[in-house]
Amino acid sequence: MRNRTLLLVEDDAQDEALTLRALAKAGVGNRIDVVRDGQQALDYLFGEGEFAERVSASLPAVVLLDIGLPKLSGLDVLTRLRAHPRTRLLPVVILTSSDEPEDLLRSYENGANSFVPKPVDFAEFAQTVASLGVYWMATNDPVESAPDGC
């Protein structure tokens, strides 16, 4: 695997621990950054606020984005990312506890690359996260940096 970063946007500390564990078990050795609310996710990706030093840093290979986030929901984050030239082509996977048909529809409408409900059963969850990690970090080829819109 190339030296690419995965950004996990997750407010639940236990889900975070379980996700990291599953990724590690699947042999995903990439650097994994974690942010815990919608605003932090935007700051991280746009290099603003507490992440001002990241303004010229390269984007992660994929963002695993929860929907139920404090401050700014995952769907709002997604809409902002798609509206910005820097992040409009960034691969975003919605990884959520919800299996509401409406969330699924709105995720795709807002430009999600994938929608994955988190299984409650841990064995299934680990399997799901592992295959996501391997696919998006090793198999998928993202646009390295989106060409500026104008």
Binding site: D12, Q14, D15, L18, T96, S97, K118, P119, V120, F125
Partner: peptide, 10 residues
């Protein structure tokens, strides 16, 4: 669907 499932998964 969102909030009660997370603790269960944990």
């Amino acid at each position: 669907s969102h909030d009660l499932r997370a603790p269960l998964r944990a």
